[in-house]
Amino acid sequence: MRRELAITHVRRVEATCEPFTWRWAEEHRDAIAENWRRRVSAKPKMFNGKVLLVSQISVTPDVCRNVYFETDYANLVAWIDMGHPDPTVANGFAMAALRGSDGAFICGVMSHDTVNGGRVYFPAGTPDRSDLLPDGTVDLASSLTRELAEETGLLDDDYRVSDEWVVVERWPALAVMRFATMNVPAAEGAEMIRARIATQEHPELSDVRVIRGMDDIDPKAMPLFLQSFLRWSFSADPAVSDSHAGLWSR
């Protein structure tokens, strides 16, 4: 599962959820429970529901195939807090690469009430049971637009989503992304989002940032996979990147 970095255009994504025993979580139950108690004492709003992690992935320019399994959110949080000790799984999520009509990106700043408070990245969330279809398919396309709406308050007619996907593999993250382009320039879009999150009772975002070039990449606040995606985007014109397939690594 561990892969330093690969960014690949794919035409479609196929994701399923299958039974899987996560041995690491089974073997570290006590440490996971203690970590959860510590986390909840600091952030009481945290809820230990079920989430989906990736146990298998295959990526070609034609298709990205992900196999997910269900686990407790507490297991995921402990795995993150302990430095991702098990390299056989990944946190795989759908993510809208939100940008204005001028090509500048818009990232959210996570609220300090959330697990990732202060971090900066595009709207996204680890898949959960709400993303599962009756046949076992994980609906990543719907997960992407739902998270975008929940975090930013944007409506379907505020943006258009590309048909193709960009898969960013940088373990422990697997970001399955689509460009979501707003109908207005990024600065105007950012103000629109700020106004909408100001009306939310429990906003996940505290603010947004406009990312226009390499100088706006924030190594302290942005996860590594996002830094890599932005560098790739600014080196390979994102305005035309939906139309070809490629691989970039370093």
Rank of each mutant, 00 (worst) to 15 (best):
W79F: 12
M192A: 14
I80R: 13
E164T: 09
A124V: 14
D135I: 06
A141L: 11
I211L: 08
V168D: 07
G100W: 11
A190D: 06
C107R: 01
A173N: 10
A141M: 05
D157F: 02
R209P: 10
D163K: 04
V115G: 11
G117R: 11
V161S: 07
P185C: 08
Y159R: 10
R212N: 07
N91M: 03
W165D: 05
R146G: 10
G189M: 15
R196E: 02
E201C: 15
V138H: 03
R194E: 06
V138G: 01
D218A: 05
F122T: 09
R99T: 05
S162T: 10
W171G: 06
D128K: 04
A124S: 15
V168H: 05
D139V: 02
P185N: 13
C107K: 05
T88L: 04
I80D: 09
V120C: 03
P219L: 06
A173G: 12
T181P: 06
A198Q: 01
S143L: 06
E169W: 04
L148E: 09
A90G: 10
L174W: 12
A94D: 12
G100Y: 09
I80P: 01
A96I: 02
T88A: 04
M110S: 14
A175L: 12
D163E: 11
A97H: 08
V210K: 14
P203E: 04
D216S: 01
A96L: 08
F122G: 09
A173Y: 14
L174C: 13
E188A: 15
L140P: 04
A180I: 05
D215C: 01
I197D: 00
L154V: 12
A198I: 00
F179P: 06
G153C: 04
S162D: 15
A190S: 14
P219Y: 07
A195G: 07
D131Y: 00
I106T: 08
E147M: 11
K220L: 15
I193G: 02
V109W: 02
I211F: 02
A175C: 13
H112Q: 15
G153S: 03
E164A: 12
V120K: 03
